[in-house]
Design a protein around this nucleic acid. Structure first.
Lengths: 248, 248
DNA sequence: TAGTGGTCTAGACCACGTG
DNA sequence: ACGTGGTCTAGACCACTAC
């Protein structure tokens, strides 16, 4: 009964429902933290059975776009500290419990995207970007040096003050102030050697080994929204990767 | 209608079906590569509806224990090269297509598990293990130095000859000869510095940066079956991690 | 043509959270 | 008590594979 849908071209009904739901979530019709209409109501809206709605939402749950809570409803995912800790922050102590870092901004500049950055961010070469350098502390010791590149277009009025003033995570800021919801990341890691400036900031000798992480953060429809290069002192911490648990 | 199941203790029916299927797969009732009975037949065997069977198999598919093929059947997963390449081998060229490595064994020894190894492998300290050192080549150049630790109990008659003689991947050998099916891995990464022996084997200067990967390979019920420490020359290669696509 | 998995429906009942 | 998601069922039809 795809009365209201029809637009589909050989796409299974539940995929079409999923596509429409994702579009409306991305358009902030239901902002992060708010509940979707109940499954029954969605079935009425789209003129499909509740089973089809459930199958569509099943996939949104698997992609962490929404979160189900029995007895309460289905909610658009938000950037709370625990989500950040488990899905986006992979640096853990070699011994002991994982913890969230404190951030200290070192610099905030406006610049233009290099050809390589533009390609990775899927913007035009030379488009305005922010370049931000942060030092991340774990247990009050500097462990990570982050260099971020953000398209100015996505974060129009971002200032050093706004960035520093937040009392929550960076991705929470992107989400609440700019409606940019980071859903997943793609990372490439390699070993490198501390240059003099990184060594100084991390309290290491020049030539010490560092873990370099090049990250692209992605939002709905896998659109890139942030580049991040992290240099990590792995003398007391590690990068944790629990792959294959159930990806797609 | 849980006539034949009953054993469940507040466990949803489809989870109980999944548990029983996993047990029987792990017991090699249906070896890797063979099809399960059809969904209809399984429904009859367990006295549940086909929808419940499908939900159980859905989760087995998500965990890559089985693979569905429309029109053919549902098959127990096997270690073919493409599966290895995409799920278990994360080293990719910084530029260019990913490729499978060639392996050259450097040493094969029988030894006893250290306390730390025993703990990670969930065996008794001092239990017999194999220690194997391999050099992995990509595009005919040495890139990875692997040190493996395997419990002898799981691989009773393993010899250097068997290990070297295989013309397939290591995990394929575990599976076909010993019925040990590696399903997922848990890895911890850090940056380190090449010692003299590693440097020599990888064709690097002593003190060059290396990516160190400590892996635990897991089979059904998350039982550990192999420890592996890899040292990777990341001057021309990287570790690729596409996290958050849809894990659980 | 027969058998397999893939989609979709409709309805019953359970478990949980809130008032 | 009510509304939410969670489980389970039964049956129809479609799409693909093999013979």
């Amino acid at each position: 009964m795809n009365l209201a849908l029809e637009t589909a071209g050989a796409l299974p009904l539940y995929r079409e429902v999923k596509r429409l739901l994702t579009l409306r979530i991305a358009a902030h019709e239901w902002p992060p933290g708010t509940p979707l209409p109940s499954e029954g109501k969605l079935g009425g809206m789209f003129q499909v059975s509740i089973g089809t709605i459930r199958k569509a939402i099943d996939e949104l749950v698997a992609e962490r776009i929404v979160v189900r809570q029995q007895g309460r409803g289905t909610f658009v995912a938000t950037h709370n500290p625990s989500r950040l800790l488990f899905h986006f922050f992979h640096i853990v102590p070699r011994k002991g419990e994982r913890q969230l870092p404190r951030t200290r901004m070192l610099s905030f500049r406006r610049a233009r995207a290099s050809a390589e950055e533009a390609q990775k961010l899927q913007i035009a070469s030379g488009e305005p970007v922010y370049r931000i350098r942060n030092l991340l502390l774990l247990a009050d010791r500097p462990v990570i040096l982050d260099d971020l590149v953000l398209p100015q277009r996505l974060f129009p009025d971002l200032t050093e003050k706004i960035f520093t003033g937040r009392d929550n995570t960076i991705y929470h800021l992107y989400q609440t102030r700019y409606g940019v919801n980071v859903l997943r990341t793609s990372e490439r890691l390699r070993a490198t050697i501390a240059e003099s400036d990184a060594a100084k900031l991390l309290g290491l000798k020049k030539g010490a080994p560092l873990l370099e992480i090049n990250r692209v953060a992605l939002t709905y429809h896998n659109a890139p929204v942030e580049l991040r290069r992290s240099l990590v002192d792995t003398s007391a911490h590690e990068y944790f990767s629990d792959l294959g648990k159930a990806e797609r």
